[in-house]
Design a protein around this nucleic acid. Sequence first.
DNA 1: CGGATTTGACCTGCGC
DNA 2: GCGCAGGTCAAATCCG
Length: 290
Amino acid sequence: MDTTRVDTSLDLRINSFQNFSSNGMDLRTDRGGVAEKSREVGTLHRDIGVSAEEFTRMSSENKKLTETLNVVLHGYNALQSRLISLAKEISANEVVESRKRKFEDYIDLELWRRPTESAKSRTSVAYFQVDAADTSLVVKDGYQWRKYGQKVTRDNPSPRAYFKCSFAPSCPVKKKVQRSVDDPSLLVATYEGDHNHRSPSSGAKPAPASPPISPSSVKPSNHTALLDLVRRGFSNPVKKPKQETELGMMPPQFLVQEMVSSLTRDPNFTASLAEAMSGAMLERSRTPSW
DNA sequence: CGGATTTGACCTGCGC
DNA sequence: GCGCAGGTCAAATCCG
């Protein structure tokens, strides 16, 4: 629709309407009185000093202007309703955002920091996909670690490395890293305890010692299946080139991010959003701009 | 030079 | 008590 032409047409009509009013008849308050006045055309046209034909033409024009005004008012009301509706939707989205933040807090505080368990007994396992030729036992999980020992164990030809968290002097968290017997390209990291400080990489909340998936009960033979799960679940991580192969261990922020991402990938969620948006835009394009 | 890593020695728990 | 395996310590070494 060419809104410019509509605007021009409307302007002309409004000008005409104003000219008509300036002649002594304020028809803006007439509202349907045109017909009655038409019946009195025999005498009224004399009062305003115009011919009967001119009066009839003006009355007709006035009727058209009234109809136009009603259409415009209807459009205005519809637009106003839509605006109120959209405002409500935005308000509802803010509620959803608020609940989402609470959910994130829940994930962080309840899943990763269960207060009923002692820090010492809390252990978790994380898996890191690395180059099989890479002999280092260093994994990047967002924390600072100091290696304090290395041992060759009986059940695994690959040595086991021992690390302590070095970000905070009093942090009790330790981790052991060893190459998987089944898959040499897989590093198995066992974490013990909880960090008593914020994550060096993110920092807003106390960071958990545990990975998103805590497969402490997973046997080595299930590593591949677990890795597949991890790969599927975190198929779209935050782009960090150096960490692209280290999918097994992710701070909870990534997990929450993935959950939020899943929500927004939900067709119902996006369809509702798209419907609301397109509805508003269509409504706006249908209504003459003014 | 200071922090991180390496590595052999030492400690501890457990089974026999 | 002894041996074994896992875990830790700490001096030596490395590295930025």
